[in-house]
Every structure is written in structure tokens, then in C-alpha cells.
Design a binder for these strands. Structure first.
Length: 770
DNA sequence: GGGGGAAGGACCA
DNA sequence: TTCCTGGTCCTTCCCCC
């Protein structure tokens, strides 16, 4: 598809006059009107569709709110235009110089060597439903409810029915529309099948949602070059394209067609089957992947192939449905593609940005590039850098893998709710659900945010940062209910009329601390420590960690969370874990690539051995010492726990739990008790638990070890309870983190930003080059 | 002035 | 009669150090 600027301008003009004829203000249309920026929606009678949408929406509270938002955007544009009027020639000259300089740098670092693919399933939810219910195939249908549609099939799109449109409006546009309720379990199952295929092309592919993903095929292409034809041959499934789920499941069981690595399936070479041989180019690899997806799921996918993620995403939309498009890895080809591309096609440019740019006469990426100096004076650095990337056809070439979750939330929309008791009850329900989700992922966060949408569609969020990271229903509710109370009180004696409530927890504590409370042997024995808390990293010896702790002595006292060193592994379920580097606490020997079972056996042996030749020699006797961390407390006293040193990050600040090494000869220490215990073992009598200090029978060292493990875990919990007394939120109520400053929700009118947000595609290497 | 919390908004699927 | 959900990131304001 070619984008013609002239056609587009003419279209805008026509729409403007059509609006005038219909007494609709054109500036309102941009929010309420049909967004036909979607495959299968080209050439629609927009005026007719918009008229229906507006007539259906007009007068509703939603419409009124949209109107208000639209006016806010218009004000932003006015401000921007005033700012533009103040720009001098000199300012433009300087700005241009800066733009040129940055452009040169970006051009120098342009990377064209990666083969990035964006795969997007066509009308995914609708396609799954049509596959499983063939009678829907020829009807306009959508998935969702009368309130909101998730997606629509291509028949429905011809009527202007699309995702994110309320069902009742869709019904006005297309009275014969069939609305099917969502069935996420089914979509997830299909998505898993598709992802299985993705992983064969890029094991580290980046899923964006159930129906789309980015893949880096660079490595695959290298290998593929040397593949014989048999490895690129796939057999065509004769199954009906509209087969039922049962058929699909049957197919799934077929090793011939669907468990389809030709190399590992010699039976595939049956001559009676129709085969398709794919080539070695990127286009062929992607065509093969799409073919396999279709064979396995009976669903089609579209794909874009480009040197970066931004372009790949745009490309996947180019030949939708069931098509693909490639931008060759050459600068000229990229620039040619970008030239006429409407800015709105770029992911990250939404309707507000589109409108603001349009006010400056910028519709396509070519114009975006030409106006960059002006944009650099009107938008924030982040925003115009983003625009510059787009105009140069640059995007991330480095997929951000394993990025950590920042927040977790749950929200619910409902009919008007005015009763306070009901609202508190709902709030608790939400907290309950959220707590379950948080605990499922082992997350704890310090900021609780309550989101409210009133019946006028006005959204408010109120946040409160608690002193300790929370994850239970009670803890979250304690904070959320106070936030809710303030809102209810603020409109009293009128009722607070809500249509949505949500609760969010963010500000997660570090990766290491957000794991369950139980501290594993792995955590104790890990050499040194690492910010990430990963056991597989070897960041320095246990002795070195002692130095670290000294160095960290000048740091602020560790936050109380630090008293809960934790990992996700318990001492009893670690057998499958192999670590790159461990250090035995008894003999201090480094052990590489050892699994925990073997490591535990080694410690047992060492304990026996140490017991036999128990010869404590003071601090120079690492073989018979254990580490006891010392956590500084406010009164300067030591806080001892039987843990090894442990470093973590809280809110970006690195903190270290201090570790003090205590030789066995040191009296009155748990370590010396261990020494005594070892001595006892040597005498075959009893062993004193280093944690609870109780003598234990020593007939069986394994039993003794289990006892110590249990004690350790109990002590962790005890310390956790001591250091985390139940938070009485009624005391903390709305004090916020700034101490005396009362939280309450600011009633001030926010100055609207005239800045744009950054496109997430530019977080990779390229962005760092700026 | 910088860091960080709060609030609100843009954008995405 | 009816306009979602869950997530990320950005921007601005404001307080504190």
C-alpha cells in the first residue's frame, strides 16, 4: 500500500466539510470518530460511520468526557502554537545544528545487520472463534460484549466495527453483527501453540501479547544457510481450514504434520504427501513460520521483516491479513519506506500526538524529519529524539528480554456504585485478587495506588507508599481503604458515584527480596552476592564479601526488608539446581557446576571431617568458622542472624547486610556453638544447634542438618515478624512518605503537559547512543 | 539542583 | 441502556536533603 500525502490531505479536508454539514465540530471527531488505522478498514465510508458513532454517543457521559479531553488537547495545541510564534530565526538555526549533529551520530550507529521479525496473528480472537464455529465464518462477528469489543473479523470491519468499540455502537453500525463472548483460556492455548513455533526460530523471542511477538532471526538465518533441503521441507495438512477444535487437537497429535522438525522426523519423507520446500532467505524463513502456524492452528499470521523493531512492527501491518513484507537491510530502502509513512502508523504515536503533529503540518515521516528543528524546540528531549529516530527509520535492534515487572494491578468496571459500604467491600475484593496475583509471582511492593473512575468518566488515582513492602490482602486493603475513605469524605455528604475501581501495587522491592521468605541453603552459601540475587552468578568469595560489608559500613542502615533475606528455593527442593560456583562453608573450597544434592553431600562429608579433626585455630581457620551477618541497628547493637552476607538493591540503592566472620574459638557465639557441636560429633554424643542452641542427638548428621534447616527457616520468619510488625495504617493514614505532609489528593488543577511520551521501541542500544 | 513520590495522561494490545 | 483491562512510560509538580 502506498500512502499518498495529497490524498490524505484531501481526505482531511473532505471530512472537515462533511462535519460542518452535519453540525459536528471537526475537532471532536478525532477522539470520537472511527479510527480506521487498522487492516481491513481501508476505503470505508467514514462520514457515514462517524455520523452513526456520533449520534449514538452524543449526550452520553462518555461523550461529554471525551469532549473535555479533546478541549484539553486543543489547549495544548494552542499553547504549542503560541510557543512556536515566539521562536526566532536564531533559535531555529541553533536547533537545526543540534539536530544535524545528532542525525550524524545516529546515522553512524545505524545498525542494519539484524533480522527482526514482528509476527501478528490476524484478528486473533475472532479467528479462533470462527475456526471453532465455522458458521461464523461468513458473518460479521466480533469478540467481546455490548460494552466493549476486543476484536472483529474482516467482514465486520467493512462496517467500521473494530476493536475497542462498544458493542452497542457496533450493533448500530452493523445490525447483523454477532458478538461472541471472550474465552481467554482458549486463546491462551492457541497462543502457546504459536509460541512453540516461535521458539524454534528464536528461543528468546519477545511476546507482546497473546497474538503478537518480536523475533530476532539473525542467528537462525546464519544456521539456516547451511541447512539441507530436508530441514526446510514441510508437509501440507489437508485438514479443512474450518476444522473444529477436536480436529485441531487431533492434528496436534500428529507427529507427521505438526510436531514438525523434519530433521527429527524421518517419517516425514513420505513421498505420497504434498511437500513445501522453503528457501534460506529471511522471507522464506518467515513464510515457513507462518505456514507452520497455519498448519498447526488453522489460523493465519502476518509478519514484518526489517532491521529493527519499529520498522518490523509497521511492516507486519502492511500486507495484513495473511501476508508479510520485508524492508531490505539497506539505508536507502528504509528511507524510501519511511518517506510516505503516516506518523500514526508508528507504534507509540497515538491520536493525541497525531493531532499535535498535524497542527504543525506534519502527517508523514518525511515531514517529521523536515520539521525536526522546530520539534526540538517545542517538545521535550525525549519526545523529539523519539521523533528523530522515527524519521530516520531507526528503532531498537536489541530486544529487551526478561525486563522486570514494575507494577501489578486489578480493576473492575461496574454500573454506578454509590454506597460506601459496597465500595469498601469491592475494594477488599480487589485487594484480595491482587494479593493472590502478587503472591503467585512472589512480589511485594511499597506503593499502593487506588484508581477511581466516577460516573462522569473522570479518572483519579491516589497513591500511598507504606513503610514496608506489602503483598497480603490485609496489608493492601489497609492502605487502599484509607485512600478510598479520603475520596468518599471529600464529596460527603454527597455519595461518591463510581463506575470503576482499581488497586495497584508498585515499587517492588529488589528481585532478591521479592521472593518468598524462606532462605535457602543456596542463599547462605552463595559466594559473595549479587544485586540480582541470581544464584548462578559468582561475584566474589565469601571472604571477599566481608570486605564488602566493611565498605558498606558507611551506608545507611539497611532497610528493614533486609532482615528478610530470601530466595525462592527452600533447602528441600533444590536438587535440580546446578550452580556455577559455590563455596563450602566448612572447608571453604570452591565448587563449580555442582548441583545442590552433591553440594549438600560435600558439606556433610566436610562436617564429618571437620568434626574428626576439629582443630580451631582462630580467625585464620576458615575451615571451621561460620559466617554470621551483623545487621546494624539504630542503637548500634548487632543484629545477628545465621546468614551469610547478602547484598541487594532497594529502590536502586545498593545495600549490604553485614557479615561478621566468627572463628570457632570466639566464645558465646553461635559459631562457637557449632564448634562445640562439631566437637560433640567427634565424641559421638550430641550436637548443639547453632540456631536454637538446643543440643540435638547426633546419631544421624542428615537429621541434624534438617533440624538446622528448620530452625533457620523459623528464625527467618521470627525475625521477619519482629522487623515487620503489623502495620497499623490507621496511624500511618495518609501521611505519605514525606512525613508530616498529608497525602490527600491534590485538588490542584494539573498543568497539562505539552510533551509527548517516548516510544518504547527506542529503549535499546540506539537510544543509548543519544 | 537532584532524587523521588504523587498524580495524571498517552499509548499499547 | 451500554464505552474495558492491565500494563508501561512520560511529564509535571512538589518536598526534602
Amino acid at each position: 500500500m502506498q500512502y499518498s500525502t495529497n490524498q490524505k490531505a484531501q481526505g482531511e479536508k473532505n471530512r472537515y466539510f462533511a462535519c460542518c454539514r452535519n453540525n459536528f465540530r471537526p475537532d471532536l471527531l478525532s477522539r470520537i470518530a472511527l479510527n480506521d488505522n487498522k487492516a481491513g478498514m481501508e476505503g470505508l465510508d467514514r462520514d457515514k460511520i462517524n455520523k452513526i458513532i456520533l449520534e449514538t454517543s452524543k449526550g452520553s457521559r462518555f461523550y461529554e468526557n471525551e469532549l473535555k479531553k479533546e478541549q484539553q488537547v486543543n489547549q495544548r495545541i494552542e499553547k504549542m502554537m503560541e510557543q512556536k510564534a515566539r521562536i526566532t530565526k536564531e533559535m531555529m538555526k541553533q536547533a537545526q545544528a543540534e539536530v544535524d549533529k545528532l542525525t550524524c551520530e545516529l546515522e553512524r550507529s545505524r545498525e542494519l545487520g539484524r533480522v527482526i521479525v514482528h509476527v501478528d496473528m490476524d484478528a486473533f480472537y475472532a479467528a479462533v472463534e470462527m475456526r471453532d464455529c465455522p458458521e461464523l465464518k461468513d458473518k460479521p462477528m466480533a469478540v467481546g460484549s455490548m460494552s466493549m469489543l476486543s476484536t472483529s473479523n474482516y467482514h465486520a470491519r467493512r462496517f467500521g466495527v473494530r476493536a475497542a468499540m462498544p458493542g452497542f455502537i457496533a450493533k448500530k453500525l452493523c445490525p447483523n453483527l454477532v458478538i461472541v463472548p471472550t474465552n481467554f483460556d482458549k486463546y491462551r492455548a492457541v497462543s502457546a501453540q504459536v509460541r512453540e513455533i516461535f521458539s524454534e526460530y528464536d528461543p528468546h523471542f519477545m511476546p507482546m501479547s497473546l497474538d503478537e511477538a518480536y523475533l530476532d532471526l539473525t542467528e537462525h538465518m546464519e544456521q539456516r544457510k547451511h541447512w539441507p533441503e530436508t530441514m526446510r521441507t514441510y508437509y501440507i495438512c489437508d485438514a479443512k481450514t474450518d476444522r473444529s477444535t477436536a480436529d485441531a487437537e487431533k492434528d496436534e497429535l500428529s507427529p507427521v504434520l505438526f510436531e514438525d522438525s523434519p530433521s527429527s522426523s524421518p517419517s516425514l519423507s513420505g513421498a505420497d504427501r504434498k511437500a513445501e520446500v522453503f528457501g534460506t532467505s529471511a522471507e522464506e524463513a518467515v513464510r515457513e513460520m507462518r505456514f507452520r502456524i497455519q498448519q498447526k492452528t488453522s489460523l493465519t499470521a502476518s509478519a514484518g521483516i526489517a532491521p529493527n523493531m519499529m520498522l518490523a512492527k509497521v511492516c507486519s501491518d502492511k500486507n495484513k491479513p495473511n501476508g508479510q513484507y520485508r524492508i531490505p537491510p539497506e539505508r536507502q530502502a528504509v528511507m524510501e519506506f519511511i518517506k510516505d509513512l503516516p506518523v500514526r502508523k508508528v507504534s507509540g504515536v497515538g491520536k493525541v500526538t497525531e493531532k499535535m503533529l498535524a497542527a504543525l503540518g506534519i502527517v508523514n515521516c518525511d515531514q517529521l524529519g523536515q520539521q525536526m528543528a522546530l520539534l526540538s524546540l517545542l517538545f521535550s528531549g525525549t519526545s523529539w529524539h523519539n521523533f528523530l529516530h522515527i524519521s530516520l527509520g531507526l528503532g531498537s535492534t536489541c530486544m529487551e528480554r526478561d525486563s522486570e515487572r514494575k507494577s501489578m494491578s486489578t480493576e473492575r468496571t461496574f454500573g454506578e456504585m454509590s454506597d460506601a459500604e459496597e465500595q469498601y467491600s469491592l475494594c477488599r475484593d480487589l485487594c484480595h485478587d491482587l494479593a493472590q496475583d502478587l503472591q503467585r509471582e512472589g512480589l511485594k511492593g511499597k506503593t499502593v495506588t487506588l484508581k477511581l473512575k466516577n460516573v462522569k468518566f473522570e479518572v483519579k488515582s491516589r497513591a500511598f507508599t507504606v513503610q514496608y513492602a506489602v503483598c497480603t490482602e490485609e496489608e493492601i486493603f489497609a492502605a487502599a481503604k484509607d485512600l478510598l475513605k479520603v475520596e468518599i469524605d471529600s464529596v460527603s455528604p454527597q455519595p461518591l458515584k463510581l463506575r470503576l475501581m482499581g488497586v495497584r501495587v508498585s515499587g517492588f522491592i529488589s528481585a532478591e527480596d521479592k521472593k518468598p521468605l524462606q532462605r535457602s541453603i543456596m542463599g547462605f552459601l552463595q559466594k559473595g552476592g549479587s544485586d540480582s540475587g541470581s544464584f548462578t552468578q559468582c561475584a566474589g568469595s565469601a571472604l571477599k564479601a566481608e570486605d564488602d560489608s566493611d565498605a558498606a559500613g558507611c551506608l545507611k542502615p539497611p532497610s528493614t526488608e533486609m532482615k528478610v533475606p530470601s530466595t525462592d528455593l527452600s533447602t528441600t527442593n533444590t536438587q535440580s539446581d546446578t550452580t556455577s560456583c559455590l563455596i563450602c562453608p566448612v572447608c571453604n573450597k570452591e565448587m563449580k557446576d555442582v548441583n545442590l544434592t552433591a553440594f549438600n553431600s560435600h558439606i556433610d562429608e566436610c562436617l564429618k571431617g571437620s568434626a574428626m579433626d576439629n582443630e580451631p585455630t582462630g580467625s585464620d581457620a576458615p575451615s571451621t568458622s561460620i559466617s554470621v551477618p551483623v545487621e546494624e541497628t539504630d542503637d548500634g547493637s548487632d543484629f545477628k542472624t545465621p546468614f551469610f552476607s547478602h547484598r541487594t538493591k532497594i529502590n536502586g540503592k545498593r545495600t549490604v547486610i553485614h557479615k561478621k566472620k566468627i572463628p570457632l574459638s570466639e566464645p558465646s557465639s553461635k559459631a562457637s556453638q557449632t564448634a562445640n557441636s562439631l566437637d560433640a560429633v567427634s565424641k559421638g554424643l550430641l550436637l548443639t544447634c547453632p540456631v536454637c542452641s538446643q543440643p540435638q542427638s547426633t546419631d544421624d548428621l542428615a537429621l541434624f542438618n534438617r533440624h538446622v534447616d528448620m530452625c533457620l527457616n523459623q528464625e527467618v520468619l521470627l525475625e521477619f515478624r519482629e522487623s515487620h510488625p503489623p502495620v497499623d495504617h490507621s496511624d500511618l493514614a495518609l501521611k505519605g512518605v514525606r512525613g508530616s505532609s498529608p497525602l490527600p489528593p491534590s485538588k490542584k488543577i494539573k498543568v497539562l503537559s505539552t510533551k509527548h511520551t517516548i516510544d518504547k521501541f527506542f529503549k535499546g542500544n540506539t537510544r543509548q547512543n543519544i
